[in-house]
Simulated scan of single mutants.
Amino acid sequence: MAKLEKAKITVLAGSKNGQVFEVLFNPTEYSFDRSNTYKATAVPGLGSPLLQFVNGEADQLSMELFLDDYTDPSGRQPATTQRSVEDRLKDLGGLLNIDRDLHAPPPVRFSWGPLEFTGVIEKLGRKVSLFQPDGSPARARLSVTFKEYRTLQEQLTSPRRESADKSKRRVVVGPQALWAIAAQEYGDAAQWRRIADGNDLDDPRDIRPGQWLILPPQDSNDGTGASLS
């Protein structure tokens, strides 16, 4: 029988660099969220505003974690260093505090099998449902939200998002023509020459399904790329 992989939260920098928090009860589910920011520009005579892409937002990973003194008395730590639910709540809550070396909360990595997510803990909600005789927490459910963390260098060397003002690639699907692709990508069928020049094509009809095309960036008067209608 394969060994059950345990989810872990690893601190990646700062005074707690390398510290690992292992989760006894793996999450029953988790969710990813991604969003983009657009600027709406009202144009007289149009029924809806033109939308201008501004930037992409960071990914978010959300889940619930469970802590229980009675089923997890050692907190998955060596028996000589038992930690209570109260102590572990303080440990995880401390990852929201400003680190003395970084002057900001530390980045962490959540890993569970093939899933690895690097980010910072944006939100940490705690709901205590069982208490010790002295009133300290004995059972708690944590609602954790991680926000993606990527350094400036990572974003420059490995851009994740594409837009009309940056070169990108797309595959030809079905019996398409260059002017149809130009109309879809640039909003102007006459831009097929831009694609033809970027791919050294003499005949705009000489493309086939499954072929990859380079789509050169589209220039705009204000240098911000194309608007979406």
Rank of each mutant, 00 (worst) to 15 (best):
K6G: 02
K6I: 03
A7G: 11
S15P: 05
N17G: 01
V20S: 00
V20D: 00
V20I: 15
F21C: 00
E22S: 11
V23H: 12
V23T: 07
N26S: 03
P27G: 10
T28N: 01
T28P: 10
E29D: 10
R34E: 06
S35F: 06
S35Q: 12
N36Q: 10
Y38V: 08
A42G: 01
G45C: 13
P49S: 11
L51W: 00
V54F: 04
V54A: 08
G56M: 10
E57L: 14
Q60R: 11
L61T: 00
S62M: 05
S62H: 08
M63N: 14
M63S: 13
E64C: 00
E64T: 14
L65F: 14
L67D: 09
D68H: 00
Y70E: 08
Y70N: 03
T71Q: 06
P73T: 04
P73V: 08
G75Q: 02
G75C: 06
T80W: 12
Q82E: 07
R83E: 14
E86D: 03
E86I: 13
R88D: 04
L92P: 01
L92G: 03
D99A: 08
R100P: 02
P105W: 10
P107F: 01
V108Y: 03
F110G: 00
S111P: 01
W112P: 05
G113H: 12
P114W: 00
P114D: 02
T118R: 07
T118E: 15
G119I: 07
V120F: 02
I121N: 05
I121R: 00
I121V: 08
K123L: 06
S129G: 12
L130H: 09
F131L: 11
Q132K: 15
G135E: 12
R139M: 14
R139V: 11
R141P: 01
L142Q: 13
S143I: 07
V144R: 12
T145E: 11
L152R: 10
Q153L: 03
T157R: 15
T157H: 13
R160A: 09
K166M: 08
K166F: 03
S167G: 14
K168Q: 10
R169F: 01
A177S: 04
L178V: 03
I181M: 13
I181H: 05
A183F: 09
A183T: 02
D188R: 11
Q191P: 01
R193N: 00
I195E: 13
I195L: 07
A196R: 07
G198A: 13
L201N: 04
D203R: 15
P204Y: 08
D206E: 14
G210K: 01
W212R: 09
L213R: 12
L213D: 02
L215N: 07
P216N: 14
Q218L: 09
D222K: 02
G223T: 12
G225Y: 14
A226W: 11
A226I: 04
A226L: 04
S229L: 09
